[in-house]
Protein backbone atom coordinates (compact mmCIF):
# COMPACT_ATOMS: atom_id res chain seq x y z
CA UNK A 1 0.00 0.00 0.00
CA UNK A 2 2.55 2.55 -1.07
CA UNK A 3 0.36 4.57 -3.39
CA UNK A 4 -2.77 5.32 -1.50
CA UNK A 5 -4.46 7.61 -3.95
CA UNK A 6 -2.99 6.63 -7.30
CA UNK A 7 -5.17 3.62 -7.97
CA UNK A 8 -8.53 5.35 -7.43
CA UNK A 9 -7.44 8.31 -9.55
CA UNK A 10 -6.28 6.06 -12.36
CA UNK A 11 -9.48 4.08 -12.06
CA UNK A 12 -11.58 7.24 -12.29
CA UNK A 13 -9.73 8.36 -15.42
CA UNK A 14 -10.08 4.96 -17.04
CA UNK A 15 -13.75 4.67 -16.11
CA UNK A 16 -14.34 8.10 -17.61
CA UNK A 17 -12.52 6.99 -20.76
CA UNK A 18 -14.46 3.74 -21.07
CA UNK A 19 -17.88 5.24 -20.45
CA UNK A 20 -17.27 8.53 -22.26
CA UNK A 21 -15.79 6.94 -25.36
CA UNK A 22 -18.50 4.28 -25.34
CA UNK A 23 -21.22 6.92 -25.16
CA UNK A 24 -19.53 8.88 -27.94
CA UNK A 25 -19.52 5.77 -30.16
CA UNK A 26 -23.29 5.64 -29.84
CA UNK A 27 -23.97 9.37 -30.02
CA UNK A 28 -21.58 10.59 -32.72
CA UNK A 29 -22.80 10.77 -36.26
CA UNK A 30 -19.45 10.20 -37.95
CA UNK A 31 -18.69 6.53 -38.26
CA UNK A 32 -14.91 6.89 -38.48
CA UNK A 33 -14.88 8.91 -35.28
CA UNK A 34 -17.02 6.23 -33.66
CA UNK A 35 -14.53 3.56 -34.68
CA UNK A 36 -11.58 5.49 -33.29
CA UNK A 37 -13.38 6.24 -30.04
CA UNK A 38 -14.26 2.58 -29.76
CA UNK A 39 -10.53 1.88 -29.91
CA UNK A 40 -10.04 4.42 -27.12
CA UNK A 41 -12.70 2.70 -25.04
CA UNK A 42 -10.95 -0.64 -25.57
CA UNK A 43 -7.61 0.85 -24.59
CA UNK A 44 -9.04 2.25 -21.36
CA UNK A 45 -10.58 -1.14 -20.72
CA UNK A 46 -7.14 -2.70 -21.10
CA UNK A 47 -5.92 -0.21 -18.50
CA UNK A 48 -8.63 -1.43 -16.16
CA UNK A 49 -7.49 -5.01 -16.68
CA UNK A 50 -3.97 -3.96 -15.71
CA UNK A 51 -5.38 -2.25 -12.65
CA UNK A 52 -7.10 -5.50 -11.74
CA UNK A 53 -3.79 -7.32 -12.10
CA UNK A 54 -4.64 -9.21 -15.29
CA UNK A 55 -1.83 -8.01 -17.56
CA UNK A 56 -2.08 -10.92 -19.96
CA UNK A 57 -5.74 -10.27 -20.58
CA UNK A 58 -4.93 -6.59 -21.09
CA UNK A 59 -2.29 -7.45 -23.68
CA UNK A 60 -4.70 -9.73 -25.50
CA UNK A 61 -7.34 -7.03 -25.31
CA UNK A 62 -5.12 -4.51 -27.07
CA UNK A 63 -3.80 -7.08 -29.54
CA UNK A 64 -7.23 -8.32 -30.59
CA UNK A 65 -9.54 -5.37 -30.09
CA UNK A 66 -7.31 -2.44 -31.04
CA UNK A 67 -4.96 -4.21 -33.42
CA UNK A 68 -7.45 -6.40 -35.24
CA UNK A 69 -11.11 -5.65 -34.64
CA UNK A 70 -10.88 -1.86 -34.87
CA UNK A 71 -8.79 -2.07 -38.02
CA UNK A 72 -11.28 -4.52 -39.51
CA UNK A 73 -14.16 -2.20 -38.68
CA UNK A 74 -12.34 0.78 -40.18
CA UNK A 75 -11.88 -1.34 -43.30
CA UNK A 76 -15.61 -1.92 -43.30
CA UNK A 77 -16.24 1.80 -42.93
CA UNK A 78 -13.93 2.60 -45.81
CA UNK A 79 -15.40 0.02 -48.17
CA UNK A 80 -18.97 1.24 -47.73
CA UNK A 81 -20.43 4.61 -48.51
CA UNK A 82 -21.29 6.43 -45.32
CA UNK A 83 -23.66 9.26 -44.70
CA UNK A 84 -27.38 9.74 -44.92
CA UNK A 85 -29.59 12.15 -43.10
CA UNK A 86 -31.07 9.92 -40.41
CA UNK A 87 -28.57 8.07 -38.32
CA UNK A 88 -30.93 6.59 -35.76
CA UNK A 89 -33.36 3.73 -36.09
CA UNK A 90 -36.83 4.52 -37.33
CA UNK A 91 -38.42 3.09 -34.23
CA UNK A 92 -36.56 5.42 -31.91
CA UNK A 93 -36.64 8.52 -34.04
CA UNK A 94 -39.61 10.22 -32.45
CA UNK A 95 -39.53 8.34 -29.19
CA UNK A 96 -36.32 9.60 -27.64
CA UNK A 97 -37.87 10.47 -24.28
CA UNK A 98 -39.68 7.17 -24.16
CA UNK A 99 -36.59 5.19 -25.13
CA UNK A 100 -34.47 7.08 -22.62
CA UNK A 101 -37.00 6.41 -19.89
CA UNK A 102 -37.18 2.72 -20.77
CA UNK A 103 -33.43 2.19 -20.85
CA UNK A 104 -32.97 4.21 -17.68
CA UNK A 105 -35.65 2.20 -15.93
CA UNK A 106 -33.63 -0.96 -16.54
CA UNK A 107 -30.13 0.46 -16.45
CA UNK A 108 -30.24 2.52 -13.27
CA UNK A 109 -31.39 -0.29 -10.98
CA UNK A 110 -28.85 -2.66 -12.52
CA UNK A 111 -25.99 -0.18 -12.11
CA UNK A 112 -27.10 0.54 -8.55
CA UNK A 113 -27.28 -3.18 -7.89
CA UNK A 114 -23.78 -3.51 -9.27
CA UNK A 115 -22.54 -1.22 -6.52
CA UNK A 116 -23.65 -3.72 -3.92
CA UNK A 117 -20.94 -6.25 -4.78
CA UNK A 118 -17.96 -6.33 -2.51
CA UNK A 119 -14.99 -8.58 -2.71
CA UNK A 120 -13.72 -10.57 0.26
CA UNK A 121 -10.03 -10.58 -0.69
CA UNK A 122 -8.34 -8.82 -3.55
CA UNK A 123 -6.07 -11.23 -5.39
CA UNK A 124 -2.43 -10.30 -5.65
CA UNK A 125 -1.70 -8.77 -9.03
CA UNK A 126 0.88 -9.78 -11.55
CA UNK A 127 2.03 -13.02 -13.05
CA UNK A 128 -1.32 -14.15 -14.31
CA UNK A 129 0.00 -15.75 -17.49
CA UNK A 130 1.03 -19.07 -15.95
CA UNK A 131 -2.28 -19.90 -14.20
CA UNK A 132 -4.16 -18.64 -17.24
CA UNK A 133 -2.21 -20.83 -19.64
CA UNK A 134 -2.48 -23.83 -17.34
CA UNK A 135 -6.21 -23.39 -17.16
CA UNK A 136 -6.66 -22.98 -20.89
CA UNK A 137 -4.58 -25.96 -21.84
CA UNK A 138 -5.79 -28.39 -19.18
CA UNK A 139 -9.31 -27.82 -17.94
CA UNK A 140 -10.52 -25.96 -21.00
CA UNK A 141 -8.51 -27.77 -23.65
CA UNK A 142 -11.63 -28.99 -25.43
CA UNK A 143 -13.21 -25.55 -25.43
CA UNK A 144 -9.92 -24.21 -26.75
CA UNK A 145 -9.99 -26.65 -29.65
CA UNK A 146 -13.61 -25.78 -30.39
CA UNK A 147 -12.73 -22.09 -30.34
CA UNK A 148 -9.94 -22.66 -32.84
CA UNK A 149 -12.32 -24.55 -35.13
CA UNK A 150 -14.78 -21.69 -34.77
CA UNK A 151 -12.11 -19.20 -35.79
CA UNK A 152 -11.19 -21.30 -38.81
CA UNK A 153 -14.84 -21.55 -39.81
CA UNK A 154 -15.28 -17.80 -39.38
CA UNK A 155 -12.21 -17.13 -41.50
CA UNK A 156 -13.37 -19.39 -44.31
CA UNK A 157 -16.86 -17.97 -44.06
CA UNK A 158 -15.66 -14.38 -44.24
CA UNK A 159 -13.50 -15.16 -47.27
CA UNK A 160 -16.33 -16.95 -49.07
CA UNK A 161 -18.83 -14.19 -48.30
CA UNK A 162 -16.64 -11.35 -49.52
CA UNK A 163 -15.23 -13.15 -52.54
CA UNK A 164 -16.36 -11.71 -55.85
CA UNK A 165 -17.50 -14.21 -58.43
CA UNK A 166 -14.75 -13.78 -60.97
CA UNK A 167 -15.85 -14.30 -64.54
CA UNK A 168 -13.70 -16.84 -66.40
CA UNK A 169 -10.62 -15.47 -68.13
CA UNK A 170 -12.03 -15.64 -71.66
CA UNK A 171 -15.24 -13.86 -70.69
CA UNK A 172 -13.38 -11.02 -69.03
CA UNK A 173 -11.15 -10.43 -71.99
CA UNK A 174 -14.04 -10.21 -74.45
CA UNK A 175 -15.82 -7.50 -72.52
Amino acid sequence: MRFDFVEPVVFALLAFGVIGAGAAVVLLNRVTASALLMALSFLCMAGMFVLLGAETIAAFQVLIYVGAITVLIIFGVQFTKQGGDRSYALFFQKQYPLAAALVAAVAIPVVLFAFSFNAPTPQPGGGDIRPLATSVFTDFAFAFEVASVLLLAAMVGAIVLTQRDEPPDGMRRRR
Binding site: I19, G22, V26, Y88, A89, F92, A99, V110, F117
Partner: peptide, 24 residues
Protein backbone atom coordinates in the same frame (compact mmCIF):
# COMPACT_ATOMS: atom_id res chain seq x y z
CA UNK B 1 -15.16 -4.54 -6.90
CA UNK B 2 -18.54 -2.84 -7.13
CA UNK B 3 -17.07 0.07 -9.10
CA UNK B 4 -15.73 -2.23 -11.76
CA UNK B 5 -19.06 -4.00 -12.02
CA UNK B 6 -20.84 -0.66 -12.27
CA UNK B 7 -18.60 0.49 -15.12
CA UNK B 8 -19.20 -2.84 -16.81
CA UNK B 9 -22.97 -2.51 -16.45
CA UNK B 10 -22.87 1.09 -17.69
CA UNK B 11 -20.88 0.18 -20.78
CA UNK B 12 -23.18 -2.75 -21.45
CA UNK B 13 -26.23 -0.50 -21.45
CA UNK B 14 -24.51 2.06 -23.66
CA UNK B 15 -23.78 -0.68 -26.17
CA UNK B 16 -27.32 -1.97 -25.84
CA UNK B 17 -28.76 1.48 -26.53
CA UNK B 18 -26.47 1.78 -29.54
CA UNK B 19 -27.63 -1.51 -31.01
CA UNK B 20 -31.25 -0.44 -30.55
CA UNK B 21 -31.01 3.11 -31.83
CA UNK B 22 -28.34 3.21 -34.51
CA UNK B 23 -29.18 2.23 -38.06
CA UNK B 24 -25.71 1.93 -39.55
Amino acid sequence: LSFYVAVSAGLFFIGCAGVLTRRN
